[in-house]
Nucleic acid binder design. Structure first.
Lengths: 334, 334
DNA sequence: TTGAAAGCGATACCAC
DNA sequence: GTGGTATCGCTTTCAA
């Protein structure tokens, strides 16, 4: 292993000088700087991460906590993960990937053993049991999602309430009066995922404001689930002409089933879907969607973390405004 | 922060004793052990990871290198990632998640700065430029995939050649004489992903052995791509009755397109698909599949790593035998 | 502008 | 069976 002492010897300076050249924390004469940098390159020096962490109480590592659930869309999950990892590297941070199955103790372990400088937690529920633990940890934390009581924890997420309203607005503007919501699977509601509830609230509120009677149904991710969901919706809304789909997993199946039932999209039914960009890609038509912005959410989560670590920012809650991407799956009601 | 000295003081022993209690590297009297363990719990002591790494030259961290590609199935990717992370925790290891976009330098950085004890690299290509770097790193490495020249690097993967043969055998045994392969997207072949080539070789070999004339076509992940692929196949194989699909992304689309063309599965065309379990779940029928075993591959990769770290094992190449799960998408040819 | 040296918090060797 | 202490490689204060 090549250590800072090796570099110092090679460059003919003290090891503290090498350290300062690398950190830029004090001014160095151009000549010394050059010599040191040359030695660093020539020897292929990389500071020992553990030693550095020990001396500086900084790891340059972010811990990202990932859910291990069947009911959460992998595409969305992966979007967050890659976005967080690539964003973190821009700040010279690496990412430690934790799963949820260690529970709150896992968070405590990582924070207390100084394996990371901050925690990013995905898939946060309304009354998430991890939240109180995180608040007690005195470790900068950013939640992807929005619990009921974030306290002094930072949060970032899509504004799902606004997203629902945007969908309703779009369909209503096109003249649709008989619409419905195909929601996430029942399991998602049951465990109190905050985004599902926020979307549903936004939907309900927007339809009421518009004076629409609009049922909503959760939808299990299977053929039978989709059929059942559609059946129930049609009982409540027999003259259905517009669907908001907030369920990545069933979208393809749903479109097939509509076709099978003789409903053309968009001639008979307009469909607007909420989900990751990839969801729309593999469909037979260009869908009207409200993209989930996983990329932005991940990037912003990292940016917020960096600001907190720099001490230049207080905790904040940021909900990203959704936008609607017009496609060919929604049309004017005639 | 609570340090080992705090625990030592609390338990009335020396810090070395605390260390030995925790590591179990020398015998301790039951009484001392109990006192120390009680103190550890009471104070909520977690050893400082950096300090530990510095003193022991062990990080208890595995670095997992993830590809950032559009053409690789996220479901498969995520399967590996979760499997590696959860398996690693069983050995008290954490996982640092790296992406490929730093290139070989990123691997060097992580290894040289002692951020991890070993590297796991996914999505390895036949002539992967990272392989020579990895071999020069003197850091235990396990590849998920199989390059042409692994050298002394360990490898683990599904035996894709055997998987292809299994598919062909299944269809042939059912009496199908006019079959074809729907392969991964052209991009996957072009960059020389090892698994695509191995599958294709297995397919070609098996069909030749059986005396079948069986065309194969790559397939782009879009509606048009699927149509085009089917068209080309039907030109070469007009009396098609059996399809092997080695392309998770297009499976759903392909099944729809077959239906649209009036081909019933399995009455007119038998379909056997290679992919993750999740791929089959959202289809309208129980598919006959050859599962990718991402879970096993990830777990075995970790186990191999652990054995290498323990010094109890030389590098090895392990190709997992595929199995075929009978479903309703393949039937006897009458 | 630079160097010397005191930690950081563990591990593991050497004594007893 | 236990304690003392050198050591790991870096950061950062203090001195010059």
């Amino acid at each position: 292993m090549v250590s800072i002492a090796d570099v110092a010897r090679d460059a003919g300076v003290s090891s503290s000088t090498v350290s300062y050249v690398l950190s830029g924390k004090r001014s160095i004469s151009p000549e010394t700087r050059d010599r040191v940098e040359a030695s660093v390159r020539r020897l292929g020096y990389h500071p020992h991460a553990g030693a550095r962490a020990l001396a500086s109480s900084r790891t340059n590592v972010l811990a990202l906590v990932m859910p291990l659930r069947a009911d959460i869309d992998v595409q969305v999950l992966m979007g967050f993960v890659t976005s967080v990892v690539t964003s973190a590297r821009k700040y010279d941070y690496d990412v430690l990937l934790l799963t949820n199955d260690e529970g709150p103790d896992g968070l405590r372990r990582v924070a207390d053993s100084a394996m990371a400088d901050a925690l990013l937690v995905m898939d946060v529920e309304s009354a998430d049991p991890r939240v109180p633990v995180l608040r007690s940890l005195r470790c900068p934390t950013v939640l992807i999602g929005l619990p009921d009581e974030p306290g002094d924890l930072s949060c970032v997420d899509l504004d799902f309430s606004a997203a629902a309203k945007r969908c309703v607005q779009h369909l209503a503007d096109l003249g649709h009066e008989h619409i419905a919501l195909v929601g996430p699977s029942p399991a998602v509601y049951e465990r109190g995922t905050s985004f599902a509830g926020r979307f549903l609230n936004g939907f309900t509120e927007a339809t009421r404001t518009r004076g629409l009677n609009a049922p909503s149904q959760p939808c299990s991710p299977s053929y039978d689930g989709v059929r059942e969901c559609l059946d129930k919706i049609l009982v409540e809304q027999p003259r259905l002409t517009g669907l908001v789909v907030h369920n990545e997993a069933v979208l393809g199946t749903l479109l097939s089933e509509l076709r099978a039932r003789g409903s053309r999209v968009p001639e008979d039914v307009s469909v607007v879907a909420v989900g990751p960009d990839e969801m729309a890609a593999n469909q037979p038509m260009r869908l009207t969607t409200v993209p989930l912005l996983s990329d932005d959410v991940g990037r912003i989560a990292v940016e917020m973390t960096m600001r907190e670590l720099a001490g230049s920012s207080a905790p904040e809650v940021r909900l990203l405004s959704p936008r609607l991407a017009h496609g060919d799956s929604t049309a004017q009601r005639d």
